[in-house]
Each structure stands twice: as structure tokens, then as C-alpha cells.
Design a protein around this nucleic acid. Structure first.
Lengths: 352, 352
DNA sequence: CTGAAAGCGCTTACAG
DNA sequence: CTGAAAGCGCTTACAG
């Protein structure tokens, strides 16, 4: 690697002046600036970030700690964040934890040893170790945060309550009155509560036995829970899944149970991962704005990391979701007056 | 952050001795070693990796450059690699490229500026920029590499030919004689060629019109191609998809076309991502050993990165795939003699 | 406007 | 066995 020293030699100045040329060009004579620039080009010099980091305390690296990326929602979030950071000249150090407390612990200390500029956290377990972060003063923001926000913490979250309400209202608007919920509990309790609250507000209800916990994040578990649900409650015409992956499993459960979606069962969920519009039928879902999340989270983190302060009213940013209606939901037949009786045909259409 | 200097002060030695205690403990008196250890514990000292990196030239960071992680195969690979590196005390700098040549270029230079110890490459576009890597001598290994391996390069690949042959033979073994292929071309040409070669070896064939290109990596595109395929060639009873995501799309295409899998259409693919055993029916697929890939790739990279040499015969490591038979394939009815006539029932079973 | 000095926190020979 | 010296490649006051 070419060093500043070599550039200096070639330009006939000292390395300090080269450094100045790079960092405070207004302080250096235009003509020597020119010579330096020339030398830099000719040598292909580009400053070593390690050395700069050691000198300035800024490494231009941020960590992202989260349970896994083998989950489309997280994968897409991480990719957006990485992209965002890249634009700002930062790099992303990936820390998946598998929700293992020991790993979290170790990763936290190694991240600290690397002098990262900041840390994005989408891993709830980390709460136990928060004191470390505080003590060491590494700037951090909670990202896509669904739990309690620690005292004084900075967070960017989605409005999960609105998401749940939108999903519930959508089914209600379509005439559904027998609505169930399939979800990853307790992780998605907020979404569940919101669904129930909205149904109640609309004059309906969501009794406990119409809430099926999947027991995990996988589609397979959702499938099993879905089959059970339909067995125990064949009267159900609409289902809110607490996230897209569960909805995908539910879709299969409906098929296996001889129900066709959306003809005799409507399914709506929350997230809008890419797979949501690649299923058949494509999922109606409440889209969580991942891109905006990446943008805001990175923005907040970098302002703190660069010594700026986030005004209290911006400490918690809540991003609004949006209903995306696709083909997994439709108006309830018995109520739908001016809808042609579609059964087999609508399936075809939704599939093509 | 506590520094070595503070530890030294408390232990009543100089920082050099502390450094020795850490890096060559055999050179220091057992009693002072003890004092130093005590001081380290009391102060919670842990050496700054930036400074160490600058002094030694080793940063304990490696980059991973690949097109995207919004694709389960890559996401799972990255996570395995990160896990593997973590165990060795390394961190992973994630570089997704979107296959954009400009981004690749920029990322390559910034990675260099960070003095990463090595680079894992699963991004074919990078071939254009290889000279940079060579010139700057950053150790790199090609990972999950399906294309040409650059002269003198180190690579860990899957045996894609074996994968294609296993998939083809599986269908042939089950009695299928009218076999088609659905794939992401030209990316998966090797897999395609292998499928064809195997069928020919077995006395069959794979005419060009039975090969459908999906035109991209998404399930949605595979779905469309699949519908087309079944329309044009209703006689087909077995399909090899070039990767699981395509198979998932094909599964939907089969449903939309009124074919039930595996009763009147068998589908086998290649990859074995998590979603492969969560679909209904779960996919028969040729598993590419991702974990082993992560292990081997990291192993190779770290030996080169630490100054070791990889013997020529280990320059290219080929990992063998394995057929995992699940429920998306079955023996062809007309040929199956001792198989009970299963139609509706088998579907149920596979679903539950 | 430019350079000499000091320092970021570590490591690696080299004396003693 | 331990410490004084020099250095990794940069930056930031501070003189001149």
C-alpha cells in the first residue's frame, strides 16, 4: 500500500501537508495542493482507514446485531442498511447471534475492541447486556424494535399497532366477521393486541380460542398451527397472520384443509417481504417500510456517532405501515352483492 | 477504554511487558505475569484491535462480497460463514453488490483501505476487477463458485455436475422418462448440462424444448416459466429445477395448472435451503453442503491470510452434494407396481 | 501556508 | 526477564 509519506516525498512536502490537503484543503496553497493531488493520482494513494481510525477515533464501521439473517425480513433489512451505510462511506460488521446470550456478550466486547462508531440493534436479548454499551459509551440505536425501549434509548420502530389495526380493519371492511389470528407469540403480542383492539372498536371481537400461536418464526410451524386452527374453527373466514412467513405457512394450511384462498378464506399479514408478492395468490399484507427504517436508523445512528444529539422528540421514530392489497383477501361471498360468483375462476386469475 | 499503559502502571511494569505478557507469556516472569493478569482483570482491559492491526498488519476482519442476501441460499451461506469466523475470532464485513460493477469497484478499494485480512468472493462480476486484488495482494478465495476459476485462484465449489446428475438420476430411478428442466440460465448452465448428460447416459434425453429458462432468480419468474412449460408439454412427469427457489415457483405452477405434486408431477431441485423442507409437499432436493462450504472456505482463506500456503492439490476444493428425498417426487404411477394407488391420500399425508 | 512535535494504542526487535 | 527505542500510518494543535 502506498503511504502518505511517499505521496509527500513525490510532491516535495511533508506528510502533514498531505494530510492537510486531504482534510482541510483550504489551509494549503493552491499550487502545492495541485502537486499533491497529482502525486496522489500517480501513486494511487488512498489513506489507510486503520491508521486514521486510531488517530481520530472514527473507524467508519458500524455493527449490526440481530438474531439471524436466515429470515427474509431481517435479510432484507440488513441489505438495506448496508446499502445505506455504503452511501455514507461506512461499512457494516455483521453480528448474528442466534439469540445466544454468550455470543451476544462476546460480540459486544469484540465490537468494542474494534472501536466501531456505532451499533444497530435488532436483537432483544441484548437488553440484558445493555449496561456494557452504556458503560463503554458506544452509540447505539434500536432498530425495528418491537419491545420495550430502554430508558433514554434511541429507537426506530414500526407502528405495529397501526399495522395490526390496518390488517384487522381490512378484513372487516371486506365483510369478514369471523376472524382469527395466527401469530408468533409472544414476540408479536403488540400486533395481536392491536388486531383485537381494532376488531372490538369495530363492534366485533377476537376471542382467545381464535388466536393460534405458531411457537416460532418458521412457515412450517405456522402451517401446523394453521391446520389446527381451521380444524377447530371451520367457521373462520378471515385470518390475520402476524407476519408474512406465517401467512405463507397458513396459505399451505388452507390448501391442505381444502379451503381455497381467497375464495373461502382470506389471509392478510404484516411485513411485505419479497416472497409476499411471489406466492400464489400473492399476499395482501401490511407493508412495513424497510427502506425508510434503514434510512432513519442509519441517520439517527450516524448523528449520534458523529457527536450530534438527537432531540428528545426524535428519540423514538415510528414509521407508518401501509396496507398492500393483493389477492389473498377478498370480500366475503355471502355479503358481496355485486361481485360475480367466482370460485375456480378467480383462483386461476390470481395464479396467473 | 482502558489502555495497556494503565494496566502497566497498575502492575508496576511498562506497557511493553504487558504486551509481552499477552503475546509471548513464556518470556515473562511468572510472578510479574500474575500481577499483570490481576491488573488486566481489575481494569477490564482488552487490547484495542485497531492499534494492534496497525502494528501487526492483521485486523482479524474478512470481507464477504456477494450479489445479495435477499436470497435464502446466500443468506444461509453468509450466516454460516459469519459463525465460522466468529469462532476463530474474526469479524465479517458484509459487501452486497447488487451485481453493480461500480459498487464492486468502490467496495474493493474501501476494503483494501481497511486492511482486511482476506476476502471471500461469491460475486461473479468481480472477475473484471480481479487485477486490483492481485496487485494489492489481498488474500481471497472464491466461494460457492460456479464459473471459471481464475488462473492460480483458490476456490471452494460444490460439485454442480454431480448435483445435476443426482437430480436427473433420481427422477429416472423413479421411472420418469419424460423429464424437463426449469432453470436460471445461463447461471446454472453447468447443472443443466449435467442433467442432460446423466439422462443421456441413462439412455434418455433432454431436448432443448424441454428446457425452460426462468430469466432470473425469483420464484415468480419460475412460476411463469413453469406454467408455460406444463402448457406446452403436458406429457412431462418429472421436472428438475436448477435451484430450490425455482422449484418453489414450479410447485405453484403445478397447482395452478391442475397438476398435483407428487401424484402426477415430480419435482426435484438443488440447494436445500430451509424453505425446502417447509413447503408442501416438502421438496426432494440435492443438498449442497453449505456448512462444509463455510468451513472450508474460511479455512482456506485463513491459511492464506496468515501466510500459509495452500498446496496446489487443495487449490480447488469440491464439495459433494447429497440427494435428500422428501415428498415432491415419487415413482411414476404407470410403472409403479407395488405402490398402492395413492392420490388424494398421499397429498394429505405429505401435507400433514 | 508549511513543518516539527506529539500522540492514537499497540508490537517488535534490541539492549541490558 | 524487563525496559528504552522505533515504528505501524495517520491527525491535530502549535510554531514559524
Amino acid at each position: 500500500m502506498v503511504t502518505m509519506r511517499e505521496v509527500a516525498a513525490r510532491a516535495g512536502v511533508t506528510k502533514q501537508t498531505v494530510s492537510n490537503a486531504l482534510n482541510r484543503p483550504h489551509l494549503v496553497d493552491p499550487r502545492t495542493l495541485e502537486r499533491i493531488d497529482k502525486a496522489i493520482d500517480e501513486l494511487g494513494f488512498t489513506p489507510n482507514l486503520l491508521a486514521r481510525g486510531l488517530a481520530t477515533g472514527r473507524t467508519m464501521m458500524v455493527g449490526f446485531m440481530l438474531p439471524t439473517i436466515s429470515n427474509a425480513f431481517y435479510a432484507e433489512l440488513v441489505e438495506s442498511v448496508a446499502r445505506q451505510l455504503e452511501d455514507q462511506g461506512y461499512n457494516l460488521v455483521l453480528c448474528t447471534t442466534g439469540e445466544d446470550s454468550d455470543r451476544i456478550q462476546k460480540q459486544l466486547t469484540i465490537l468494542r475492541r474494534r472501536s466501531i462508531d456505532g451499533l444497530l440493534i435488532a436483537e432483544h436479548q441484548v437488553a440484558e447486556h445493555l449496561d456494557v454499551l452504556e458503560r463503554v459509551r458506544v452509540p447505539h440505536v434500536f432498530c425495528s424494535w418491537e419491545g420495550e425501549i430502554p430508558e433514554g434509548g434511541i429507537a426506530v420502530t414500526f407502528d405495529f399497532e397501526a399495522a395490526g389495526r390496518l390488517a384487522a380493519r381490512h378484513l372487516h371492511d371486506l365483510g369478514h366477521r369471523s376472524i382469527a389470528m395466527l401469530g408468533q407469540l409472544p414476540e408479536h403480542r403488540r400486533r395481536l393486541d392491536a388486531v383485537r383492539a381494532e376488531l372490538v372498536d369495530l363492534g366485533g371481537e377476537l376471542p382467545d380460542d381464535l388466536v393460534q400461536a405458531t411457537g416460532g418464526p418458521s412457515a412450517a410451524l405456522a402451517y401446523e398451527a394453521g391446520v389446527r386452527l381451521l380444524q377447530e374453527h371451520p367457521e373462520v373466514t378471515g385470518i390475520v397472520a402476524s407476519h408474512d412467513i406465517a401467512a405463507l405457512g397458513m396459505l399451505e394450511a388452507a390448501r391442505a384443509s381444502g379451503r381455497s384462498v381467497p375464495d373461502d378464506l382470506s389471509i392478510v399479514s404484516i411485513d411485505d417481504i419479497q416472497a409476499a408478492h411471489q406466492s400464489h395468490p400473492p399476499l395482501s399484507t401490511v407493508a412495513l417500510p424497510t427502506q425508510a427504517m434503514a434510512r432513519e436508523a442509519v441517520d439517527r445512528l450516524l448523528t449520534v456517532a458523529t457527536g450530534g444529539t438527537v432531540p428528545p422528540e426524535q428519540a423514538i421514530t415510528t414509521l407508518e405501515p401501509m396496507l398492500v392489497q393483493r389477492l389473498s383477501t377478498r370480500a366475503l361471498d355471502t355479503k358481496a352483492v355485486d361481485t360475480k360468483p367466482v370460485t375456480r375462476r378467480s383462483r386461476r386469475r390470481s395464479a396467473g
